[in-house]
Structures are given as structure tokens and as C-alpha cells.
């Protein structure tokens, strides 16, 4: 899963480093506990399995691997900007809002399209397409095999 390490998302980099660096990280984090910059969430919360929600620094090793893999897979899914040319994709069925010019979109292998923010949050909880229930990882593998 080398790709996860190169991911542009800084959250998962710190997550993966945390497993190597051990307790030093937490002391470093508590030293930096001042008011965070407005664009940065303090410590991301992850949902490794139903009814389990934990901050990134309290995940078990197994959960860290699962989440790092998930982040990596999501980053492989194509994104785009809504330009109004697609006749099929008009509305995000998660937030029920119509796509507006310039909205960031994410395309799933099953061809369903959502707002990037809406579907990314969902896929971290459950890796299935909310519209057709197709498991996204299975569909990703099929895409690799055929291409």
C-alpha cells in the first residue's frame, strides 16, 4: 500500500507514521494542542466498523491498516469538476442537492456519481455504492483486470 503514504491527505500520513513512532507522537501532539488553524480538524475520527468510532491516534493496528487501505482505494477513484455536460449525473443522492457548476465530483466504478465530500465521508464508513449497493473494492478489482 505504498500509495497511501504518497497520498496528498496529510491525515493518513500522520496516521501511518504514528504506528512506527510510538508514544513520541502523542507527546508531540499534546505539545501542539493549541488552537488549531481554522482549516484543520484536530484529530480525525475514523469508523473502522459498525458502532466503532475512534480518533486516529486510538486505532488498533488492524484498524489502522484497514483505514489506510481504504484511504488509498478511495484516492484511486476518479474525480472531476461538474461542468454541466453530463446528462446522466444531475443530483447527488446523498445530500439531495443538484450539482452546480464547479462542484467537485467523485465517480464510482459502477458509474454512479456523487459530490466528492459526500461520498468520501460515506466510503470511510461503508465501502458500497449507496445507490446500487455494489461493493466498491470488488468493482475496482474488475476495472483493473479489464484495463
Amino acid at each position: 500500500m505504498g500509495n497511501c503514504l504518497k497520498s496528498p491527505n496529510t491525515d493518513d500520513i500522520s496516521l501511518l507514521r504514528g504506528s512506527d513512532a510510538g508514544p513520541e507522537v502523542s507527546s508531540e501532539q499534546s505539545a501542539n494542542m493549541g488552537p488549531p488553524p481554522p482549516y484543520q480538524e484536530s484529530i480525525p475520527i475514523y469508523h473502522p466498523s459498525p458502532n466503532v468510532s475512534r480518533p486516529a491516534n486510538q486505532l488498533t493496528e488492524e484498524e489502522q491498516i484497514k483505514i489506510a487501505q481504504r484511504l488509498g482505494l478511495i484516492n484511486h477513484l476518479p474525480t472531476g469538476v461538474f461542468d454541466g455536460t453530463s446528462k446522466k449525473a444531475k443530483e447527488c443522492c446523498i445530500c439531495m442537492e443538484e450539482f452546480l457548476l464547479g462542484d467537485m465530483l467523485r465517480f464510482l466504478p459502477c458509474m454512479h456519481t456523487y459530490h466528492k465530500d459526500c461520498i468520501d465521508d460515506w466510503l470511510m464508513r461503508s465501502f458500497i455504492c449507496p445507490s446500487c449497493l455494489e461493493p466498491v473494492d470488488a468493482a475496482l478489482l474488475t476495472t483493473y483486470e479489464t484495463s
Binding site: H47, S49, P50, W122, R125, S126, F127, P135
Partner: peptide
């Protein structure tokens, strides 16, 4: 709650 539990009690 959504997701897959490792016991496979309920499909996602």
C-alpha cells in the same frame, strides 16, 4: 450503523 462487521452478522 453502516459498515461491515468482522463477524458477518449483517451485510453492509
Amino acid at each position: 450503523e453502516p459498515g461491515d462487521d468482522k463477524y458477518g452478522y449483517e451485510q453492509a
